[in-house]
């Protein structure tokens, strides 16, 4: 059996999750602090989550394709190609996974008691210090849950990846795409295998996320006194 789809999937999903993690975190903090225009930015950031995969793929193709403004720039200046490459698969995964990270992290930030932030300001904490020593630790379980969701989404990404990165075995063929190819070529046995692996991994990730998000995990060793 060819295990390359597994390796490619993990590589693409891990890389995409690292980027999505920071992009989503900063976007969440940015929107959380916004006073005006919050609604429109939030809608824009959430859009990739509900766009049909083909529409998302089309956007990415027109942007990162050889005629697209980013694609042509990258090719002429850095000689980097996006279409039909693993980089394309990463970009497609970032695009669709971003809203999950962004929304979960923003929700976690919004749970923070505003007075704690105000107190930190009056106690001389810089914006940077407030973000890294207060907001992120306080929103930790939400942020981790967002990261797991983003990873799971990146791992299962199919539509936009197909359009941007294509289906090149050993190069851009991920597990999700391998299922599609296997069914297309009538290799039902192979399809079953990938389906089983993907289902098991997704199941495990949701379990992990629920564990991190549960109040039992957040409770520490000491029982609170009243």
């Amino acid at each position: 059996m060819d295990f390359r789809p597994f390796v490619i999937s993990i590589q693409v999903a891990v890389t995409a999750t690292v980027f999505t993690f920071f992009l989503g975190l900063f976007a969440a903090n940015f929107v959380y602090k916004m006073k005006r225009g919050k609604g429109i930015i939030d809608t824009l950031f959430t859009l990739p989550m509900i766009l049909p995969p083909t529409v998302a793929g089309f956007f990415l193709l027109t942007t990162f394709g050889r005629q697209g403004f980013v694609g042509s720039f990258l090719e002429s200046v850095f000689d980097i190609r996006i279409v039909f490459t693993p980089t394309g698969a990463v970009i497609a995964s970032i695009f669709v996974a971003f809203p999950l990270m962004y929304r979960t992290a923003r929700g976690a930030f919004e749970q923070i008691d505003q007075n704690v932030i105000y107190a930190a300001q009056t106690l001389g904490f810089s914006r940077h210090k407030i973000f890294w020593t207060l907001k992120v630790p306080m929103a930790k379980s939400g942020i981790l849950a967002g990261a797991v969701l983003a990873f799971a989404r990146a791992l299962g990404e199919f539509g936009a990846t197909m359009m941007l990165a294509g289906n090149i075995p050993g190069r851009t063929q991920t597990m999700a795409i391998a299922v599609f190819s296997a069914v297309n070529t009538g290799n039902i046995q192979l399809a079953y295998t990938w389906v089983a692996i993907l289902t098991a991994m997704s199941f495990a990730m949701i379990m992990l996320m629920n564990f991190w998000a549960s109040p039992r995990h957040r409770r520490r060793k000491n029982v609170p006194k009243n």
């Binding site: 704690v116 105000y118 930190a120 009056t122 001389g124 207060l134 306080m138």
Partner: peptide
């Protein structure tokens, strides 16, 4: 001047301790 530069001691109603 932002709050960081005013050096006022502000005791909040719920004390606003850093929970982490």
């Amino acid at each position: 001047i932002p709050p960081q530069g005013r050096n006022v001691g502000f005791l909040f109603q719920n004390y606003a301790l850093f929970p982490t």
